[in-house]
Simulated assay, not measured.
Amino acid sequence: MNMKKLITLIFVFFLVNNLQAQYRDGADFKLGLTAHPTIGWIRSDVNSINSDGVKLGFSYGVLGDFLFRESYAFSTALKLTTINGKTESTEGATTNKQTYKLQYIEIPAKLKLLTGDDKEVRFYGEFGLGNAFNVRAKADVKSNNSANTAEGLDIYKRTSFYRGSIIIGGGAEIATSGKTRILAGLTFDNGFTDIQKGDGALKSSYLGINLGVFF
């Protein structure tokens, strides 16, 4: 069994067991929506390829928090997330600047810690595993060699299907009316798997400026 399948199985096992325990204990469930920008970049372990700055992306989808204690929750989501980034590579006298446009379905598994629920504002911190599955991959290439220049190049077959990451973040939930709460915070999603197939190691990360609402 390869590492990709093993990580997926561990995540599914963890999710199912947590949901069963939460429903058995009569835990609360919060459902919400999110839509927010991401600031992405790509790190390189290849000598001839360097990171070339950040690029804006976007993320939106459904949030779910399963509270199994007053201040502890299992937090997950189903999001469509675009992680963009730029690299610069040199081959002899040729310099290529490549902009990656990678789109994933994200299903994170996080532990969320919250302050007491007797306040209109609850602060939180979270830590967990990011699980993302590639659904589209394109690239723009600018080069001093016109033969290498391309726009909207489909690179899906050259990219990895699974992207694993470590997530750390924090923010606040602000009560408005009834059970409705506005979510605002920051998330650092640090990728640790190669985004491309074959040799080399390019790893994508992003900073998410979280905005959402729980109902």
Rank of each mutant, 00 (worst) to 15 (best):
R163Y: 08
Q98L: 14
I155E: 00
F161W: 07
F127H: 02
G85M: 07
P108V: 06
Q98H: 09
G64I: 13
K112M: 15
Y124I: 06
D189Q: 06
D154S: 03
F133Q: 04
S75Q: 14
G130I: 01
L63P: 06
A139V: 02
A132I: 03
S89I: 10
K119H: 12
G171Q: 03
L111P: 08
Y72P: 07
Y72H: 13
Y104K: 00
A132M: 08
T176W: 04
R163N: 12
S146W: 06
Y100L: 11
N144H: 11
T82P: 04
N131Y: 04
E126C: 08
N190F: 09
N144L: 08
N84M: 09
A175D: 06
I174M: 03
N190V: 07
S177W: 10
A175G: 04
T180F: 07
L102A: 08
F123P: 01
G185M: 00
S89A: 14
L67Y: 15
L102T: 07
T82G: 10
A172C: 02
S89Y: 06
A137M: 02
G116S: 15
G164D: 01
T115N: 04
F127C: 08
L102S: 04
L78H: 08
R158W: 06
D154M: 01
T176G: 02
L153N: 03
Y156D: 03
D117S: 15
G152M: 01
K112I: 13
I83L: 09
I182V: 12
N84A: 13
L113D: 07
K179W: 01
I182W: 07
G64S: 13
Y100I: 03
N131V: 01
T187S: 11
K97H: 14
N144Q: 10
K86W: 08
K142Q: 14
K97A: 13
K138C: 02
G125Y: 06
Q98M: 13
D65I: 12
K179C: 04
F66Y: 15
T94C: 11
L67F: 15
A109E: 05
K97I: 13
I174N: 00
K112E: 14
V62M: 15
D65Q: 14
E173K: 09
